[in-house]
Structures are given as C-alpha cells and as structure tokens.
C-alpha cells in the first residue's frame, strides 16, 4: 500500500437530529480505487459528499470530525472550500454537463481558477479529453453543445471536467448506474486508467463493479463502517456476518 491520499477521523454527519454517519475513521491510499458499498440509505453517499464539503449546501446538514488532506483538516472553517474542491473532483450518478459546448465544459473549471491563456486552455481541454478516452470521439465537434453527446459520453465528459482542474482525488457517486453496459464498461476502464494518477473513491450498488474496479472496499450499514479491507478479502472472506450477507445478496 502506498502513501495516504487522505484520511477521516471520527467523521459524523447529521441531518437535523438524525445522525447519518457515525464516527467514521478511514484511510484512503493514493493511486487506488476505494469502493463504498452498502444498502440504500446506509450513508455512503453522504459520506462521499462530506469529503469535499458538498454537504455545506444542504440546509440542516452538520458535519463533525476531521478530514485530513495534505496535513490540513478540511472541516476547519478556515479551509478555502474553493481550493479544496479543486483538489477533490466529484462525479455524480446522473451526468450533469453544463449547457455549453464540449470545450467550454472542460475549460470552465480552469477558468475559475484563473487560467485565461487560450493556448493553455486548449492544452488542458485536449489532455483532459485524452485522459478520459473521449478525444477521438469529440475532437471534431469541440464547439458543439455537450448536450448532444450520448449519456455515456456525457458522463466521461463530466469526469474529464473534474480532471481538468488537476485534482488528486476523484469522488464518484454511482458513476455508471445510469448508463448502458457498453458505456459502463468504458467508465470502468477509465477508472482503472485514472487510478494511476488519482485516488478514486466510488460509491456503487453493483457488487460486480466494486469487485472489478476497486482495490479496497468499505461496507457501510446504517451509518456505520462495518468493514474496510482489500476488495479481495471483502469479497472472498469477509470478517463480518452482515458483510457476507450483503455481498451474497441475502439482504439489501
């Protein structure tokens, strides 16, 4: 196992009175894929969202505990959320391309962070699209609307958009569950490719997907982290009964 990309310490999230995440401490190694699995409502998406403070925008949500990245606790009020989110990209279940051209979708983030030079933006757009294996498919229509792309292409565009701001961590919330099998396979290939550079945390409902793409797997249940180990171990020899039950489809 390589160095740690980041870790959480006693992280709790409350929605009003309800505690959605209960004191979770987890280490995330860099250049690995970590899958978060568990039944609906177990808190895995909430956990994922809290990692780049997306819960800030939800009224009534409250986060306690620490998330350490590069020697800083990001829940510290002094943390610059803008810089933080540059470091941690996020991709959602439903592709959410902006109503702009393909080029503008990618250039959007870098522009926020002050890159104005046209040549530099061109480079970023091309390299981001290459990284997500989209370049050959869209290079002739960079200035057409991103909404004309297929669902799978849109999702890869969203990944490219996150990559364009040069994060070190990518959070993916069921990135393939709204896609057809072919597009899903492409996104999974992409994840395998991207993990050479990034730490990828992926929430998935698909056991096979977790087994295929991830190096480590965390099983969540009712806001608790039940088990966190190598994917190999979780899927072949889990230490907890409930993990075994969930993986073999006896509940959830």
């Amino acid at each position: 196992m390589g160095e740690k990309a980041f870790f959480t310490k006693d992280l709790s999230v409350y929605y009003g009175e309800k505690q959605a995440i209960k004191k979770i401490s987890m280490d995330f190694p860099s250049r690995e894929v970590i899958a978060l699995i568990g039944p609906s409502g177990c808190g895995k998406s909430t956990f994922l969202r809290s990692l780049n403070r997306m819960n800030d925008v939800i009224p009534g949500a409250r986060v306690e505990g620490q998330i350490w990245i590069d020697g800083r606790d990001i829940n510290d009020p002094a943390t610059d959320v803008v810089l933080l989110r540059q470091k941690i990209g996020m991709v959602w279940q439903k592709p959410n391309p902006f109503h702009k051209s393909i080029y503008e979708n990618i250039a959007f983030g870098p522009r926020y962070h002050g890159i104005r030079d046209k040549k530099k933006l061109d480079e970023i757009v091309e390299s981001s699209l290459r990284k997500t294996a989209l370049w050959d498919e869209v290079k002739d229509r960079l200035h057409r609307s991103a909404l004309a792309l297929s669902g799978g292409q849109q999702q890869r565009l969203c990944i490219a958009r996150s990559v364009a701001v040069q994060p070190s961590i990518l959070l993916m919330d069921e990135p393939a569950s709204a896609l057809d099998p072919v597009s899903t396979a492409k996104v999974e290939e992409l994840i395998a490719e991207l993990k050479r550079e990034y730490c990828i945390v992926i929430v998935t409902h698909n056991m096979y997907q977790a087994a295929r793409v991830s190096d480590k797997t965390a099983f969540f249940l009712m806001g608790d982290l039940v088990e966190y180990d190598t994917t190999q171990k979780i899927f072949t020899n889990p230490s907890h009964r409930s993990t075994d039950d969930y993986i073999s489809g006896r509940f959830g």
């Binding site: 933080l84 989110r85 926020y112 969203c158 996150s162």
Partner: peptide
C-alpha cells in the same frame, strides 16, 4: 448543474 459547478471549486 449547480453542484457540478460547486464541485469544480
């Protein structure tokens, strides 16, 4: 859309 933009910083 909004979240996508927030997530880019």
């Amino acid at each position: 859309l909004r979240e996508g933009s927030f997530a880019l910083g």
